[in-house]
Amino acid sequence: MEEQYRISDPRVLKAVAHPLRVRLLGLLRSDGPATASELARKVGESSGSTSYHLRELFKFGFVEEDDERRDGRERRWRSRHVYTSWDAAEMSATPEGREAVRIMHARQAEMVGRMLGEFDLADWPREWVDVAGMSDHILTLPPAALREFADRAEALVRELADRHAGDPDARQVQVWYGAVPRSPGQEAS
């Protein structure tokens, strides 16, 4: 699997930003190869619907058939990349690009909300409950400081993943970080 898929075409970003496609791609990345039927059961959709959206993800280069683990007559699909990225400044050069980024940001926020909504504290031991959650900060920073934050957060995430690979107490965790400037007078959340 390749590390990242760097998108420069707004049409490709909009194609993956479809709500079901985002979920299917996320499941293939987190849980590994699956058939359209297996994914349909996980997301509560028909296998015809998941099959269609998997073919669309294939068309745009996000997934591929997993020939090594073919499941009888049904195709198994796998993600081609660990994550997807794009240059927001490059995308914002056109109205179509700005719209694609806006849609993708909305999908990302929906996914965070869904994950937090499904996280049931009663299902986890205290050591996990103590460290899980979110926080928000309102800071006054220049763009260079925000770039430093993003770069250092990315480096830390990679370092921790490498250092704890194979740890028997490790579990798959979803880590988010994001920052956007506030417009003057914008309501704080």
Rank of each mutant, 00 (worst) to 15 (best):
L141K: 13
L121P: 04
D123Y: 00
E118Y: 15
V112D: 12
L116R: 06
L121A: 05
F119C: 14
T140W: 06
S135K: 03
A122I: 02
I138C: 10
D136R: 02
W128N: 15
G133L: 11
W124K: 00
V131I: 04
M115Q: 13
T140I: 10
L139N: 05
L121W: 03
L116P: 12
E127L: 08
P125G: 07
D123T: 07
A109Q: 10
H105M: 07
F119A: 09
W128L: 11
L139Y: 12
F119R: 02
H137G: 04
V129A: 04
R114C: 11
W128T: 10
L141C: 12
V112N: 05
R114Y: 11
L116M: 15
H137F: 11
H137P: 06
G117S: 06
D120H: 05
A132H: 06
L139G: 05
P125Y: 07
L139Q: 01
M115E: 08
P125F: 04
D136H: 10
M115Y: 02
A106D: 15
V129M: 03
A106T: 10
E118S: 06
R107G: 03
R107H: 04
R107K: 13
E118L: 05
Q108W: 01
P125N: 12
R114K: 04
V129H: 00
W128A: 02
L141P: 02
D120F: 01
Q108N: 07
A109P: 08
E110G: 07
V129I: 11
D120Q: 04
L141V: 09
E127S: 08
A122Y: 11
M115A: 14
A132K: 05
D130P: 15
T140F: 14
R126E: 00
D123E: 07
L121N: 08
R107E: 13
M134Q: 13
D120A: 10
D136L: 03
W128G: 00
G133E: 07
Q108G: 04
A132E: 08
D123I: 03
D130L: 10
A132I: 02
M134P: 08
G117I: 01
M115I: 06
M111Q: 11
A106Y: 15
I138V: 14
R126L: 11
L141S: 10
P125V: 13
G113C: 10
R107P: 01
D136C: 02
R126P: 02
A106K: 08
W124I: 00
Q108C: 09
E110N: 01
D130I: 11
S135N: 03
P125E: 12
W124V: 00
D136T: 15
M115R: 08
H137T: 02
S135E: 14
R114V: 07
I138P: 13
L121C: 12
T140G: 05
E110D: 14
E118Q: 12
Q108H: 02
P125H: 12
D120C: 09
Q108L: 07
L116D: 03
E118K: 09
A132L: 15
D130V: 14
V129D: 05
A132R: 09
R114E: 15
L141E: 15
V131R: 09
M111E: 01
S135H: 09
H105T: 14
V112W: 08
V112C: 11
V129F: 00
W124P: 00
S135I: 12
F119W: 14
E127P: 04
A122F: 09
V131P: 00
G113D: 01
A122T: 13
V112T: 03
L139C: 09
L121K: 04
G117E: 01
A106R: 01
